[in-house]
Write a protein that binds this DNA or RNA. Structure first.
Length: 779
DNA sequence: GAGCACTGC
């Protein structure tokens, strides 16, 4: 396989720094397992988008890797120590950052303009430095908000900046993400938050009066929530906050024009980054023609790169999905020892390849493996086969070579059909550059692209933004909640389109969130408050009137956690499926929602964390995921209480079998010193005697998913009740092989090789008729 | 009878 070197401005920036690497927090934690606790608030490096910390924590907290670090008492630093450390960071690191070196000029622009668009490349220090520059000019009692698309980024940036500023986290510098707020309303001047959090705040304070500066970071990622925020901000500065609100839109790639135009030609600043150069290579035309299978190409390239590049530096390959990755890993596992032997025979010093998969649906303990350092004496090279997760969410140290298939999987919502399609498509130029940049984080790197140079030129500059390819019923509800009257002509950064908006509004109307006149109903107000998709909110609200709120809450909480049930790997699949089947006597009859309820009951019924972890392991369920289920359930419960005081009566109804049961907190704290004093009333606890009122529960779900139903046909196939399309039960469903349901309801309709219903339940035809009549009343 | 990329409240 032959590559052509690309010698044009596509390669990353060229400045070369002697970057001194700090200790890797992950390794530190491992080494210190049995030592005295260390004061640990050290940082990986100067890159401002370093966001592995919480990720690693989450990984570390899984089953066999639970090192209990969170529970070790850390000594608090004194003010003096905090200041000294801040001073050291200032002299040794901050002053060398490109943003710091251009401080005066940047500040001049910010002072002179209400909106500034700042393009800062990776490692420029934009996310950590610019907010700090602004702190002195903040009016007393006001704040700076910096938004991030991801939780991990908000948390780790706040930690970093607090250290630089010389304060404990949560004082002058803090953060706010779901389930974790470390900010002080009075003290905090600089707050890092997820853009979802700021949007929540906007729903209660429509003018965001507590903020004087808003910094929207990573705007180029164009998540739905970022787009919405930018739209609201534009309205604000054109209206009620046209005087005392300043806005900085930060972005890493050249999408600046769009942002600048959106904000009436705001000035654009460009700050160079600090990464190492990466050389890009493309396939020759001939090789490109020979290419039949992307997995095969990846493997051939990897072997070639491993053969021709000197020892040292790992390989990162981008593939579209789990299927391709698993296939590649299996092949490499077989091939690698054979190659090793053959190299040895020929007396060639070529490293052995160690293949490692990485994707979101992989168990945390397996994800962790990509961070493990190989034994340097063993003459091995890691080859990580990853999805898009390695493009933004996870940074893997040690990567020097990137192999890019140029493909990714994308989910596209077809609003006219009410289904999602999952397609494998070419990535954008911006994605390509982001991917190749992964090779240049620690030293010069190389990136091999499995397509022609001419093909690169034909790629779209940017990926399609989320807002035009996703279901927007939830964003529309937020707009309504904030009081936007004319949604079609709202200040969309990019409009999802008239049709999508109309279909979305109709959806909200049929859920009872909007009135005939298109006004927000009382029910809509409640739905907007819940941190759920409108469909699920409707299910919960319905359940409150039917005395099955506890069971429904359990299930909704489970549905809110992604990758709770993992795909068992092929060799254990049959065993795990059988275990799940045996553990769910009702689920195998009534479907996946009831199965989740049964699993929930089993999980909280187990007496110790150890048993819970063991059970999760056997069932191929993430323990971490279940911890989130419990958090989400608790949060939803709080919201519901606020929404409806009459809930107390439900509470009475459902307050049973609490005695002799330890709360989850008690289980987690077992063996700890302090006793859990506030015996958190486990309010609407369990339904009486663990009996599940299956009919009521499923009917509640029908109120949210009436359109997601299909009728059983005489030939044992199913046809959707809306359009009559044939739909199949997804193989991941517990009732995949059950053919006798008169009708089914599902929470998701995905088209891959054909139409699949996911998360399927058996329902009766009469229920469907009842609910369809009931839903009609809103019309 | 066969398989889903990634976030967020």
């Amino acid at each position: 396989m032959a590559f052509q070197k690309l010698n044009q401005n596509d390669s990353k920036s060229t400045k070369n720094f002697n970057k001194k690497k700090g200790p890797n927090p992950f390794r530190n934690k491992l080494q210190n397992k049995n030592k005295k606790p260390v004061i640990f608030q050290d940082f990986e490096d100067e890159n401002d988008d370093e966001d592995n910390d919480e990720y690693l924590d989450s990984v570390l907290n899984d089953n066999e890797h639970d090192l209990n670090f969170n529970k070790q008492p850390f000594r608090k630093l004194t003010d003096r120590e905090l200041k000294d450390r801040a001073e050291t960071i200032l002299e040794t690191q901050r002053k060398r950052l490109p943003v710091y070196q251009n401080k005066d000029e940047i500040m001049k622009y910010i002072n002179d303009n209400q909106v500034v668009v700042l393009i800062g490349e990776t490692g420029s220090g934009k996310s950590t430095q610019i907010p700090q520059f602004l702190i002195p000019s903040v009016t007393k009692g006001k704040k700076i908000a910096v938004t991030q698309p991801r939780r991990v980024a908000a948390i780790s940036l706040a930690g970093r900046v607090a250290a630089e500023y010389g304060c404990p986290i949560g004082d002058d510098v803090g953060y706010s993400v779901r389930f974790d707020n470390r900010s002080n309303d009075k003290k905090t001047k600089l707050k890092y938050l997820t853009d979802g959090m700021l949007l929540r705040e906007l729903m209660t304070d429509k003018e965001l009066n507590q903020y004087e500066y808003l910094i929207i970071d990573e705007a180029h990622e164009r998540t739905i929530l970022t787009d919405l925020l930018l739209g609201f901000i534009k309205e604000l500065i054109m209206g009620k906050r046209n005087k005392n609100l300043k806005v900085i839109v930060m972005s890493a790639t050249l999408q600046a024009d769009k942002f600048s135009k959106f904000f009436n030609d705001a000035p654009i600043l460009f700050v160079k980054g600090r990464t190492y150069p990466v050389e890009n290579y493309h396939l020759t035309s001939k090789d490109c023609e020979d290419q039949t299978d992307i997995v095969e190409s990846i493997i051939r390239s990897a072997i070639q790169v491993n053969f021709s590049e000197p020892f040292g530096g790992d390989m990162l390959c981008f593939l579209p999905g789990q299927e391709e990755i698993d296939k590649a890993v299996t092949i490499l596992q077989k091939l690698s020892p054979i190659l090793k032997e053959s190299y040895a025979k020929d007396k060639l010093k070529i490293p052995e390849l160690i293949p490692l998969p990485l994707y979101a649906a992989l168990s945390p303990s397996k994800q962790l493996l990509v961070f493990n350092k190989l034994n340097s004496k063993k003459f091995q090279r890691k080859i990580i086969l990853a999805t898009n997760i390695a493009e933004t969410s996870v940074t893997i140290p040690g990567v020097k070579y990137v192999i890019d298939s140029g493909l990714r999987k994308v989910k596209i919502w077809r609003h006219e059909l009410g289904l999602s399609t999952l397609l494998t498509v070419p990535v954008s130029k911006a994605s390509c550059q982001q991917r190749s940049g992964r090779a240049g984080r620690e030293s010069e790197g190389k990136c091999y692209r499995l397509f022609k140079e001419q093909d690169f030129e034909t790629l779209p500059a940017q990926s399609e933004s989320e807002i035009i390819r996703c279901d927007i019923s939830s964003p529309l509800l937020i707009l309504k909640k904030v009081g936007v009257k004319d949604i079609l002509n709202w200040s969309w950064l990019e409009s999802p389109g008239k049709n999508a908006i109309i279909v979305g509004l109709e959806e909200l109307y049929s859920l009872g969130a909007l009135s005939d006149a298109g006004e927000m109903t009382e029910k809509g107000e409640k739905m907007a408050l819940l941190p759920l998709a409108p469909h699920l909110s409707n299910v919960l609200l319905e359940a409150m009137d039917r005395n099955c709120i506890s069971s429904v809450l359990d299930i909704v909480a489970c549905l809110s956690v992604e990758n709770l049930l993992l795909n068992p790997s092929p060799e254990i699949r049959d065993v795990v499926n059988e275990k799940r089947y045996q553990s769910s006597p009702l689920g195998r009859k009534f479907g996946d929602l009831i199965m989740l309820k049964e699993f929930y009951d089993i999980f909280i019924g187990l007496d110790t964390v150890q048993e819970q972890k063991q059970w999760c392991h056997e069932m191929c369920i993430t323990y971490r995921g279940f911890q989130n289920v419990l958090k989400i359930r608790k949060q939803l419960k709080e919201y519901l209480k606020k929404i409806d005081a009459s809930l107390e009566k439900n509470q009475q109804f459902e307050k049973h079998n609490k005695k002799n049961k330890k709360t989850q907190e008690e289980k987690e704290n077992l063996g700890e010193f302090e006793d859990n004093e506030d015996d958190d009333d486990d309010d609407f606890g369990n339904d009486a005697g663990n009996r599940i009122d299956i009919e009521s529960v499923l009917k509640c779900f029908l109120y949210g998913f009436v359109k997601n139903t299909a009728i059983g046909m005489p030939d044992r196939s199913y046809r959707t009740s809306t359009t009559g399309e044939t739909i199949s039960i997804h193989p991941s469903s517990l009732i995949f092989s059950k053919k006798d349901s008169p009708a089914i309801m599902y929470t998701e309709y995905v088209f891959t090789s054909k139409g699949f219903a996911r998360n399927v339940s058996r329902i009766e035809l009469e229920w469907l008729q009842d609910i369809a009549m009931g839903v009609k009343k809103f019309k």
